[in-house]
Amino acid sequence: MNPDFSLNCPLPVEGDLVRLAHGGGGRAMQGLLERTFFPAFGGPPPGLRHDASVLELGGARLAFTTDSYVVRPYFFPGGDIGSLAVHGTVNDLAMAGARPLYLSCGFILEEGLPLEDLRRIVASMAAAAAQAGVEVVTGDTKVVDRGKGDGIYLNTAGVGLVEPGIRWHPGRVQPGDAVLVSGDLGRHGMAIMACREGLEFETRLESDSAPLWGLVEALIRAGVEIRCLRDLTRGGLTSALVEIAEAAGVRITLEEGAIPVLEEVRGACELLGLDPMAVANEGRLVAFVAPGDATRALEIMLGDPLGQGAARIGQVQAGPAAGVAIRTRLGTLRPVDMLNGEQLPRIC
């Protein structure tokens, strides 16, 4: 365990009850990890924290990760909880540079869930697994009383084989590195939001949910010098960048005009008062690459079906204070901070 924990954990998490913000991927969740989970289980130093853990086993390097899925509604434009549960977990493996191989799947079903819905979800999982090149090899099923679940919750865990020589983590990010995103931001979050009870608005937006290993593999095969990858889920680009900047002790400066956001997403965000940079995605990654490889990395992304709309959005600089800043279109500079919780809970 990190010996520093005793220095910053005398205060309990604010309030004495779990709140939705604790699951939102922002500051409240970080606080929960640092004050409750890491002290109990031990946690890696910030520079090594990642979407998946890399374990050395008998000479092989395995990436291991798990994720639970509680998205509401469980069918949404562009996907469903089943495909999401495959994409989310294989993407966490891919971000560690691991070829995803095997998944487990736990089903928590609510009494009264239509079997037809379950069959559709399972078929969608199978199709997503086949597309991502993984096998679902073990699983578990539990049923809870009517009213005690929201139809269906899923948990998937995944293992993958880390490609030789790859050690990507936030601690490797250096001043000068280029920051790239693989496509436009915020589509998943806004697609879910558009079909939420009480928020319905008309849109053709579909979730960006997709498996990213193919894109990552293309970058590896081309020999691009990658420092760190992160897929953009809860908290969006903002949370990912702030976490990495703080872990690496660097300043990340973004160009507002370079950040790709669809007009439809921008419009909906303006209307609802949301920041597209903090809205969830499920098929987008941010890549930190060596400055000399930035142009090539961008070309590879743009040449891949999963990298359409990729863009170079900023650069890493040395301190003084670690964090993220954005240069606005008016030329002024302002910091970007992660939210406390999620702008809209239960998005994945």
């Binding site: 779990v18 709140r19 939705l20 913000a21 009480g198």
Partner: peptide, 17 residues
């Protein structure tokens, strides 16, 4: 407390637009 605290304590608090 605040309304989020009231919700965590079992109150039915909903966000509407």
């Amino acid at each position: 407390t605040d309304l989020l605290g009231a919700r965590a304590a079992g109150g039915d608090v909903r966000v509407v637009y």
